[in-house]
Computed example of a mutant assay.
Amino acid sequence: MALTFYWYPKCGTCRNAKKWLDSHGIEYKEIHIVENPPSRSELEELYKNSGLDIKKFFNTSGQKYRELGIKEIVKTASEPELLDLLSSDGMLIKRPLLTDGNKVTVGFKEEEYEKTWA
């Protein structure tokens, strides 16, 4: 299955991930995460397939995260509430997100990409 790459073109980390994918000849479909964020059901599937804590899906360094006080919200909110919040704004989602429909990586770490996608 082809890879789906959710990214934000102005994000340096996303550009580094894209460079890595291109240099390894890996084909992917790119999706602008702010203009076309994953739906709530897509996010739920990504989260469940990732095996990660749902908090790892939040862009904790983003302005929106700070503005909305999400650091406090995630302490007490339920999983469905957090998924609703994530799906409300693509800027809240940590990027890039890369998936083949089964495996998922959140953010970009070269070692993790090597292990998962090379």
Results as ranks from 00 to 15, higher is better:
Val104Ala: 00
Ile70Asn: 11
Phe5His: 03
Phe57Trp: 02
Thr105Leu: 01
Val106Thr: 04
Leu3Arg: 08
Ala77Ser: 15
Gln63Asp: 05
Gly51Glu: 05
Asn102Ile: 14
Arg40Cys: 07
Ile33Asp: 08
Asn102Pro: 03
His24Trp: 06
Tyr113Val: 08
Thr60Phe: 06
Thr76Ser: 15
Leu85Glu: 13
Pro38His: 05
Gly69Met: 11
Pro38Cys: 09
Leu68Asn: 10
Val106Ala: 07
Glu30Gly: 15
Gly69Lys: 10
Gly25Glu: 12
Glu72Asp: 15
Met1Ser: 09
Lys115Asn: 12
Ile73Val: 14
Val34Thr: 08
Lys94Trp: 00
Phe5Arg: 01
Leu83Pro: 06
Glu45Trp: 04
Glu79Phe: 01
Thr76Glu: 15
Lys56Asn: 10
Asn59Ala: 09
Glu30Ala: 15
Ser87Ala: 10
Lys71Cys: 07
Arg66Ala: 14
Lys103Gly: 02
Pro37His: 07
Glu35Met: 11
Thr60His: 14
Thr4Glu: 11
Glu111Pro: 04
His32Asn: 15
Glu81Ala: 14
Ser87Ile: 02
Glu110His: 03
Cys11Pro: 04
Asp53Ile: 09
Cys14Ser: 08
Leu85Tyr: 06
Lys18Val: 04
Asp53Trp: 07
Asn59Cys: 03
Leu98Lys: 00
Leu52Cys: 11
Lys56Gln: 12
Glu79Ala: 11
Ser23Ile: 06
Leu97Ile: 02
Met91Thr: 10
